[in-house]
Amino acid sequence: MLELLSYDFMQRSLLAAALVGALCSVIGVFVVLRGLAFVGAGTAHAAFAGVALAYLIGFPPLPLAILFGLATVWVTGVMEEQGRMKLDVSIGILYTATMALAILFIGLMKTYNAEVYGYLFGSVLSVTSEELHIILVLSVLVLGLIVLFSKELYFIAFDQEMAEASGVPARRMYYLLLTLIALTMVVSLKTVGAILVFAMVLIPASTAYQLTHSLRHMTAYAAVIGTTSAVGGVLLSYAWDVPTGPAIVLLATAVFFGSVLFSPKRLRRIVA
């Protein structure tokens, strides 16, 4: 197993997986607590549409993925604020519409392009060192902003109106959170893919939710669970020669069901 680490591509993919695992699970805490699960899924598909368009017109994929992702979350945020539509309805429409765009863009391509599918299903083993740099920079940016504004983000996740009433600029923080969700989706596209990235956001945070009653502990547990399942998934996928994205997600899912079975909260309820 150790010789595995001497391969450059293996070092890159393990590092990329660890970064994405940590990033997704930390943002996931806020997504789960603020009830934004569906927003994350929608944004990942929007970002994928950006990637497809980039390949169609011969443009670098990253800027367009960011543009599509941000546009989707911001439109969702405005729609929710104005109360014209329920959040799940508006994101449901954007989610499918951007996916339709992605399929349209792929259909318009004259030749089959395997790289595009890498963004859909994830291909962490093919992460280049340039892509790793981008993942690193964006991960540090997103995690840094979360640490910087953690107290405000926790507060709006708990009770946004209360946060605003007590003097926290809650609305700006909500848009910051949406922006960070979009960036996380973009960073993770290449590693776990648009379809599965969402699991990396939800599962570690939900697992941690089963284990503790403290906000800070929940975040720490989620980060550990997310990072280890991502790294473990890469190693398993190499060892068993199975695709990486599913390996990571299924490993995380197994941990989740374990946590549900052995949740102190649940056990307490049965005893009580």
Binding site: K151, E152, F155, F158, M162, A163, S166, G167, H213, L215
Partner: peptide, 19 residues
């Protein structure tokens, strides 16, 4: 919501402290 009593009360300080 996973939060302790002290964590809840500490939130009262957040707006006062500022960003």
């Amino acid at each position: 919501f996973p939060i302790t009593v002290l964590e809840t009360v500490m939130m009262g300080r957040y707006g006062v402290l500022g960003l």
